[in-house]
Design a protein around this nucleic acid. Structure first.
Length: 106
DNA sequence: GTTATAGGGAATT
DNA sequence: AATTCCCTATAAC
């Protein structure tokens, strides 16, 4: 379940999501974004704009959607950074920094 | 309708 | 390197 996933994550032994997630009340836009997130492996990052280009939208809209992420860490929105610097984070930038350092991205 | 954003870019200082 | 201004798409109101 979720805790196994998180335990593996914090032990740096990444794995795919092995438990069901209820996406029934997510809109199509959100699914697109979160789906892209699941394709981003541990230790890699992308910019808001990269996602925006892929999904034919604007970087700002990506931010809007990421901040609504219902499952942070399992949908790794912390791996999306600003082009010049670190972006924002719903749980506070401290968390984002911590997570990225844990993944060796800083 | 309008406003606020987890952004980007160009122009200016 | 920092400020200012304008662009954008989406959510919330």
């Amino acid at each position: 379940m979720v805790f196994d996933f998180l335990e593996r994550y914090f032990d740096r032994e990444p794995g795919s999501i092995s438990f069901p997630i209820d996406c029934s009340d997510l809109k199509p836009y959100h699914l697109m974004v979160y789906h892209q997130l699941t394709r981003l492996p541990f230790g890699k990052t992308m910019t808001y704009q990269d996602l925006a280009v892929i999904l034919k939208t604007s970087p700002r809209a990506i931010g809007q959607i990421l901040k609504l992420n219902p499952f942070p860490i399992v949908f790794p929105c912390h791996r999306i950074v600003s082009k010049s610097g670190l972006g924002g984070f719903s749980a506070g930038r401290e968390w984002k920094v911590g997570l990225l350092r844990h993944e060796g991205c800083l």
